[in-house]
């Protein structure tokens, strides 16, 4: 059974009679211990998907899903209190801007201790000293130099990388089974990025923790996860295993994202880019959402919305997919 099982997740904002769908029928399953990436441009609905899983979408946002289950429990059916018992314990989340995600008024030890006091072992909930000892352990686990001195540090005394390590320490404090990392390295220096990704990889491996890594950066995702879903305008365009999807993407959008990587543009004056922007959620084209920007667009794409086709460990939402290399003959019939 999948650890996280999402089917037909939609998140709409705005007035009910003219909803603006930030997330539009997303299916996503994550197995225990699996690392999954969610990529897409700004505004493609990555973060909103994560917030919907966490139960942190506030009105006027409305979350609808055929199924949104964690370890077999239907999250949508839970009371807010029952849901809060899972959030922060079994599902933890870290954010894009770690310095903004730490409360400036409290020390590192307090903010780690807060998670322990809420979800920790009975011992940790009772004893402040126990929490402090555990906080120190956690800081060491996330490889913060001079961990003991950092316990009483204030957020404004931390660098971005250190703050993200503290956020990770808070997230793993109660041994979650799923960690959602929303652009965890976007706000960090490149060298620190690599360290934080390495740390995440080590922690998921050691704790058998599943990871949902959200990023606009394909390079980050490629090195960190085993499966990836490509999101565009709130819909999953393509999903597949990492080596395959990067070696031979089948969706024109995935192709365009890969072509835009700087390492594929060596010697060119400008990066290859997909013209245009993500259609605003209030002005959707009637057919395929990519149609106005797609280099391979045909008449059918403009009229009819392609449905996701499920293959072996892959999903594809395109009428005229690219033909994978070495499979030309097999693909001719479709």
């Amino acid at each position: 059974m999948a650890l996280l099982d999402i089917e037909g997740l939609s998140v709409a904002f705005g007035r009910p009679d003219s909803p603006i769908r930030a997330v539009d029928g997303v299916d996503l399953a994550i197995e225990p211990g699996e690392t999954v990436g969610l990529v897409g441009e700004s505004g493609s609905g990555k973060s909103v998907t994560a917030l919907a899983v966490m139960g942190l979408v506030d009105p006027p946002g409305r979350v609808v899903a055929r199924r949104i289950a964690f370890a077999g429990r239907d999250l949508a059916a839970l009371t807010p209190a029952a849901r809060r018992a899972i959030v922060g314990k079994d599902i933890a989340m870290i954010f894009q801007d770690p310095l903004a995600a730490l409360d400036p008024c409290y020390t590192v030890a307090f903010q780690i201790g807060e998670a322990l006091r809420r979800h920790g072992t009975p011992d940790e909930r009772r004893s402040a000293r126990r929490r402090r000892a555990r906080a120190l352990e956690l800081l060491a686990q996330v490889e913060i130099p001079d961990a003991r001195a950092r316990l009483d540090a204030w957020p404004h005394q931390l660098s971005g990388g250190m703050a993200q390590r503290v956020m990770i320490a808070i997230a793993i404090a109660c041994k979650p089974r799923l960690l959602i990392a929303d652009e965890p390295t976007t706000a960090l220096d490149v060298t620190v990025q690599a360290q934080v990704l390495e740390l995440l990889a080590r922690l998921t491996r050691e704790h058998g923790m599943a990871l949902l890594l959200i990023s606009h950066d394909l390079a980050v995702v490629a090195q960190s996860v085993s499966r990836v879903a490509v999101l565009y305008a709130g819909q999953v365009m393509e999903e597949g295993r990492v080596p395959a999807i990067f070696a031979s993407p089948r969706h024109p959008y995935t192709r365009a994202l890969i072509d835009a990587l700087p390492e594929h543009n060596v010697g060119r004056a400008r990066l290859a880019a997909l013209p245009g922007v993500v259609p605003s959620a209030s002005a959707r084209p009637p057919g395929c959402l990519l149609a106005p920007r797609c280099p391979r667009v045909r008449e059918r794409c403009r009229i009819e919305l392609p449905r996701p086709a499920h293959g072996e460990g892959s999903v594809l939402r395109c009428f005229y997919p690219l033909v994978p290399r070495g499979a030309v003959a097999a693909d001719m019939g479709t």
């Binding site: 018992a85 959030v87 954010f95 903004a100 995600a101 730490l102 409360d103 809420r118 808070i170």
Partner: peptide, 25 residues
């Protein structure tokens, strides 16, 4: 602020988030 969302992501009750984090700031 992000830290309010982060506090809610810890599973803290609305009251705890409001008093401990929001009001304090």
């Amino acid at each position: 602020e992000d830290y309010i969302r982060a506090a809610r992501a810890k599973g803290l009750s609305v009251m705890a988030v409001t008093i401990v984090h929001a009001l304090r700031n």
